[in-house]
């Protein structure tokens, strides 16, 4: 699934790296616990989270994730956005809640690669 499709499905606002919207996402993960995210390697994945701090971007960076979606309209700080921009990670925010956001993407065919 292309990042641009995720953006449309979640009616999300793109905050960094708009030039990467054509890139593919192969897997997804929804969690507020970063250690749980780090437990399973997923290539070219999107992370959905309600947690807002620098370690969300660090976690995405370590996992080679390509996109982070903040749910429930949480607003990341400029510092968070600058780090994501420098690591070439697309950040967006959506008004959807975690459960709904995951459900929308799942029912559109996105899966967690095991």
């Amino acid at each position: 699934m292309k990042i641009s499709e995720i953006q449309k499905l979640l009616n999300a606002e793109v905050l960094t790296c708009k030039e990467n919207l054509d890139n593919d996402v192969k897997s997804a993960c929804g969690s507020d616990m970063m250690s749980d995210v780090l437990a399973y390697v997923k290539d070219q994945a999107v992370l959905l989270t309600g947690l807002v701090n620098m370690q969300v971007i660090r976690t995405a960076e370590m996992m080679d994730m390509v996109c982070v979606v903040f749910v429930r309209n949480k607003v990341p700080t400029d510092e968070i956005l600058a780090l994501a921009e420098s690591k070439n990670i697309v950040v967006m925010k959506t008004g959807e809640r975690m459960f709904d956001a995951c459900g929308i993407l799942y029912s559109s065919g996105l899966r967690q690669v095991k």
Binding site: M34, D36, L38, A39
Partner: peptide
């Protein structure tokens, strides 16, 4: 802060 899940 998103850590302390006992997975480290």
């Amino acid at each position: 802060l998103g850590f302390g899940a006992g997975m480290g």
